[in-house]
Amino acid sequence: MRQPPVIAIVDDDDAVREALFDLLQVEGLAAQTFRDGAELLAYAAADDFACVITDVRMGEVDGLELQRRLRARGYPVPVIFITSSVEDATRIQAMAGGAAAWFTKPVADEALLAALRSALDATREA
């Protein structure tokens, strides 16, 4: 039987991490939280995640770098960005790197869940 999808949540802000975790929980989705990109990359089962939701600006390994490294490892996991950054250049870079979606904070729950469902469907079909 297929494992239920687990979503990785990456953000250096405690409150934001917890809030996203609880939003996914009320919709019946399992999630695991990480403080920054380095923590996720160091996690042994990093390639098991069905989707990664991440901020851009974080400590050592920021969101863009995280996406690059995941791709470099050959993980096709979809990455959704939720960020305070309003710079177009960053958004273009993220999308060019294969990002599934880009949201600015505070994110509307409907939009995020829709993008998440869409990304999970794509993974399942892959």
Partner: peptide, 17 residues
Amino acid sequence: NQPLSAIVTNAETSQRW
């Protein structure tokens, strides 16, 4: 924006519950 973000998400989650 960080705390605001948490507030909005938590409020929306509460409404879903």
